[in-house]
Computed example of a mutant assay.
Amino acid sequence: MSPADVAYLDIVYEDGDRLGQDWADGPTSIQAAYVWDPARIVPGLGDAHILGVEAPVWTETLATIDDVEEMVFPRLAAVAEVGWSPAPADTEDVSVARDFDTFAARLASLGQHWAAAGTNFRRVPEIPWRESVTV
């Protein structure tokens, strides 16, 4: 399952971005990439019908590895968590079941490690990024 409006990593984060495509229902924020349920995308399909999620990135408009990394990180972490975390109950609001604030704090810590490794990533404003890794 890879709905373009939440899982495609080459879709712009914000209108007017220099990198990425804008064909899939507009920008994809980090929160949108995190707060969705694969079993609620196609009516009539449930958890038993879905083998997993994927996060495609098409690189025809991305010229360098830095461009690719900026498009992939941090949204790849959001889509990965959707894939490995328990699905919300059918009656539960997905935005409540997936606690974005808790995810944002974890992502901020992960960003420290990306920075230490020299990985380029998009410092989206919704995340309280930290500048250095605490050892």
Rank of each mutant, 00 (worst) to 15 (best):
M1V: 01
S2R: 04
D5N: 12
V6F: 08
A7H: 06
A7V: 02
Y8Q: 04
D10M: 06
V12N: 00
V12T: 03
Y13H: 02
E14T: 09
G20Y: 09
G20F: 03
A24E: 07
V35N: 11
V35L: 10
D37A: 07
P38V: 13
I41T: 13
V42R: 11
P43Q: 00
P43Y: 00
P43C: 07
G44A: 05
L45K: 02
G46R: 05
D47N: 15
D47L: 12
H49I: 01
H49T: 11
I50P: 02
L51C: 06
G52L: 02
V57D: 04
V57E: 06
V57L: 10
W58P: 04
W58Q: 00
T59F: 01
T59H: 10
T59G: 04
T59D: 07
E60D: 12
T61M: 13
T61Y: 12
T61E: 12
L62R: 00
L62V: 08
T64M: 07
I65F: 08
D66M: 08
V68S: 07
V68C: 07
E69N: 06
E70C: 13
E70Q: 15
E70Y: 15
M71T: 07
M71I: 03
R75D: 03
R75Y: 04
L76V: 04
A77L: 02
A77I: 02
A80M: 14
A80Y: 00
E81L: 13
G83D: 12
S85Y: 11
P86G: 13
P86R: 15
A87W: 09
A87V: 15
A87Y: 14
A89Q: 10
D90C: 12
E92M: 12
D93A: 14
D93F: 11
D93Y: 08
S95Y: 00
A97H: 13
R98E: 04
R98P: 00
T102H: 00
F103Y: 05
F103H: 08
A105C: 03
R106L: 05
R106Q: 09
A108F: 00
L110A: 11
L110D: 00
L110M: 12
G111C: 01
G111F: 06
G111T: 07
H113R: 15
A115E: 08
A116R: 09
A116S: 13
A117K: 12
T119I: 15
T119P: 08
T119Q: 10
T119D: 11
N120I: 14
R122G: 05
P125T: 03
I127W: 05
P128A: 08
R130K: 11
E131K: 05
E131G: 10
E131A: 11
E131R: 06
S132E: 14
